[in-house]
Write a protein that binds this DNA or RNA. Sequence first.
DNA 1: GCGTATATGATAGTAATACTATTATATTTG
DNA 2: CAAATATAATAGTATTACTATCATATACGC
Lengths: 237, 237
Amino acid sequence: MIVILLYLQAKYLVEMDNLKIRIEVDQELYSKNPALSDLGKKILSSSIELIVELGFEKFTFKKLGEVINSPESSIYRYFKNKHILLIYLTSWYWSWIEYNLVFATINIKSSKERLLKSIDILTKPMSECQQISSMNVSLLSNIIISESLKSYHTNKVDEENKKGYFRAYKLVVQRISDIILELKPDFQYPHMLVSTIIEGVHHQKYFAEHLPSLTDINKENNTIENFYKEMALNFIK
Amino acid sequence: MIVILLYLQAKYLVEMDNLKIRIEVDQELYSKNPALSDLGKKILSSSIELIVELGFEKFTFKKLGEVINSPESSIYRYFKNKHILLIYLTSWYWSWIEYNLVFATINIKSSKERLLKSIDILTKPMSECQQISSMNVSLLSNIIISESLKSYHTNKVDEENKKGYFRAYKLVVQRISDIILELKPDFQYPHMLVSTIIEGVHHQKYFAEHLPSLTDINKENNTIENFYKEMALNFIK
DNA sequence: GCGTATATGATAGTAATACTATTATATTTG
DNA sequence: CAAATATAATAGTATTACTATCATATACGC
C-alpha cells in the first residue's frame, strides 16, 4: 500500500524529490509498528544488514540483538518471528516498487512505453545511497533477490495468503498486468507474464552472481533489461 | 549424469520401456550410497513423502527416523544433513529429466519440434504411478516445485557449486540451450531463456495452487505448456 | 564353521535455535 | 506527580542439528 502523507509529523516522513512519503506496511505484519520508534528503526536497518551478511537461515533475533545491543525479547515485541520480519521487509519493498512504478509512468501516454518503463524499474539496480526511513533499499533489494522466495515457500502460504501478507507483491503484478492489457486487450496471460518476468529477473541476477552457466548476462552486451523487454514485446506483439 | 547399465545386478535396476536404467547421483552428495541398501532406499522414499507432508523446514531426520523406525544416527550415515539430502533429491530429479529429454527427442529431426518436446517434458505432470527405484517421481516433482529453490538459495552456494552439486540441473539447461542454438544459431540468450522457463514453470505451478492471482492458468484454456511454448517461439523467431 | 568386517540399533550428550515469562528500570504523557 | 509505556536484564523450555559410543546382527572370506 502506498500512503502519501503531506505535512504530517516530520519525524515519520522522508524527503524525496520534494515529496514527503511514507511506505506503509500492513498492520498484520508487525506486533508493534517498527517505523514509529528508534528501536524499531534500528531493528529494521540492522536486520537488513545482518540478513545480507549471514543469509536468512543463519540470521537469528539473538544475533540481531547483539548487533543493536538489545535483548532478543525486545525484538520479539515488534515481530512475532524472523519469518514475519522477512515478509514485512518484502512487503515494504514491493510497496516501494509500486510507488516507483506509479510515479515513473504517470505522465507517459503510450502503454508500450509504460510497460518498458515498468520493466526498467523491475530490473535496474537500486542506487547505493537510497535510504528511505531507515531502509537501505540497495541492500534490501539483495535480500529480495536471494531470500524473498522463502517468504512464500512455506507450509503456511495458504493461511498467510488469506491474511493478506502478500498483497503488496500482488498489487505490483496487477498494476503491470493492467498496462499489458491496455496494450493488448485480448492477451491471455498478463499475470503469468508479469510474474514470470519478476521472478525471472531475480533468478537471473542470482545466477549471474552464483551460477553463471545458467544465464547469459555478462556475455557480450546482454542485459537483463533487454532480455525481458524483448521477451515481453515479442510475446505480446 | 545418466548411466545406462545393461544386464547389471538386477536388484539395482529398474525395468522401464524394456530399458534397464539407473539414475546415478554424484558421489559428493551422499556419505554412503542410499541406492545400494534397503535402509538407504527406505530413507529416500520416506523422506520424499515426509518432505511433501511437512514442508522442508519442518522436516527433520529425527521425524524421518520415527517414520522408518530407525535412529537418526543411521540416517546421518547416509546424508551429512537434510540440506545435502535435498540436493541429492533435486539432483536425482534433474538427471531423470535429462534422461527423459534424451529419449523423447532422440528421433526427432526438427529442432523446433525437439524444443517443443522439451518444454512438454518440463511442464507435464509426472504420472502418479511412476516409481523408479524407490523414488516416487510424482511426489518428488512436488518437492522440486515447492522446495528445490532452497537447495541453492543458501550462503553456501558458491562453495557447493564449486563441488559440482548443481551439475545435473546445469546439464539440463545446457541440453535445451543447445537445441535453441540449433534453431537460431545467433540467439543471444539461450541459457537465460531456458532457466527462465524452468523456474517459471515451477513458479506458475506453485502460484496456481497457492497464489492464483499471480497467474492466469485455470482461466479459460490457458496452460503452462502453451504459455511457455508461445513465449519461446515468439522470442526466438 | 570361525573370525572379521560391515551395517544397523540403542542410547546419551551438546550447543544452538526459537521462543516465552518475569521482573526491574527508564521515559513519556496526561 | 502519577500512571502508562517502552525497554533492559535475566531465566527457562522444547526442539533442532548434530556427534559419540557401544552393542548387536548379518554377510563374507577362508
